[in-house]
């Protein structure tokens, strides 16, 4: 390790932070624009060309608003919750390999670290709901915790299955194994597990649920809980939650790309890896947005039933199946 290493790390962290900020802002634009298209309207058009400056206008508005702490709230935790939301998300970006060389820290236990970071947001949302002393917030906090506990299990089982297939915890290692043409991607690795596409769909559902996205947005079910845990937040307090939501979507989709879609590897091999990585990433994010504007929200017990009664047994089965397949072949 030379003296260059800390500087490189710092640069990467700054880069990751700005990547998250820029993406969160412009994914909101993408979301609003595509929601507009799904709903037969134009979406934002006023600020800048095709509303491209809208996220900046929104950010200025959010930042200039007063942060109100409701009376009776736990002031410290109420302020801490948004702060706790963001750093784990940014930290996770330090581990994500965008391409062969574009990775801050190439951990050998990257997968576990990533998982640990991305699970952190539950605590933040729960604290936000609890500390604001709002009944909607408290219901939302209770929902978030039970929802995340329920979905952590199938998610873990999927990841263990993938570990069996790849045999390494290093994210770069997992991607390296999928080099070559697209049939080497884990998604099509039917020799290791004939149910691989099912595993991916389960991963995707769990990812939607973990990031509290529709149709599993129990935390801020706006027709029932107004805005759930975020009801009492104003200005940038709300803005940070909003950004962290998008950061978590990016992390979840990036993980899907790394685990199933061969990371930065190109199916045809023309552009540099990072472009392929981002392409796959944004395609998945687009699907997440698409799902949100297409489906109604599930009912809470339906959501838990789905996890405990369907997803967990199925993932257990795919897990066993992969173990057997890997042992045989």
């Amino acid at each position: 390790m030379t003296t260059v290493e800390p500087i490189r790390l710092l640069l990467f962290l700054v880069g990751a932070a700005s990547f998250v900020g820029l993406n969160a802002a412009y994914l909101v634009w993408v979301e609003r624009k595509s929601a507009g298209r799904f709903q037969r309207r134009a979406g934002p058009t006023e600020v800048g060309y095709a509303g491209l400056l809208q996220p900046i206008a929104d950010a200025i508005k959010l930042m200039s608003k007063q942060l109100i702490v409701p009376p009776g709230a736990d002031r410290f935790l109420f302020r801490m919750a948004p702060v706790m939301m963001m750093p784990p998300a940014i930290m996770a970006f330090a581990i994500l390999p965008f391409s062969e060389h574009l990775v801050a820290i190439d951990f050998n236990v990257g997968l576990i670290a990533l998982f640990a970071f991305s699970s952190f947001n539950v605590i933040a949302v729960m604290l936000a709901g609890w500390s604001s002393r709002n009944k909607y917030g408290i219901i939302s906090a209770a929902r978030v915790v039970s929802q995340n506990v329920a979905y952590e299990i199938p998610m873990m089982l999927v990841i263990i299955t993938m570990l069996l297939v790849s045999g390494t915890l290093s994210l770069t290692g997992i991607v390296e194994q999928q080099a070559g043409a697209f049939w080497n991607w884990n998604l099509f690795n039917l020799a290791a597990n004939p149910l691989m596409p099912v595993t991916f769909i389960i991963f995707f559902i769990c990812m939607l649920s973990e990031t509290n996205r529709a149709p599993f947005d129990m935390a801020e079910a706006e027709s029932e809980l107004v805005a759930g845990a975020y009801t009492e937040y104003a200005g940038m307090g709300f803005g940070v939650f909003f950004m962290a939501e998008y950061a978590n979507i990016i992390i979840g989709c990036a993980l899907a790309v790394i685990l199933f879609f061969g990371g930065w590897h190109s199916p045809i091999g023309v552009f540099p890896g990072v472009i392929w990585f981002l392409l796959k990433l944004y395609l998945l994010i687009f699907i997440v947005i698409w799902v949100r504007w297409t489906f109604p929200r599930t009912q809470f017990y339906g959501l838990l039933n789905l996890s405990w009664k369907i997803l967990i047994p199925v993932t257990l089965f795919t897990f066993l199946l992969s173990s057997v397949m890997i042992k045989i072949f």
Binding site: A35, F38, R40, P215, E222, S223, T294, F295, R297
Partner: peptide
């Protein structure tokens, strides 16, 4: 009310 926002616009 059920969380599907698109039908309203249709």
């Amino acid at each position: 009310d059920l969380g599907g926002m698109t039908p309203l616009l249709y």
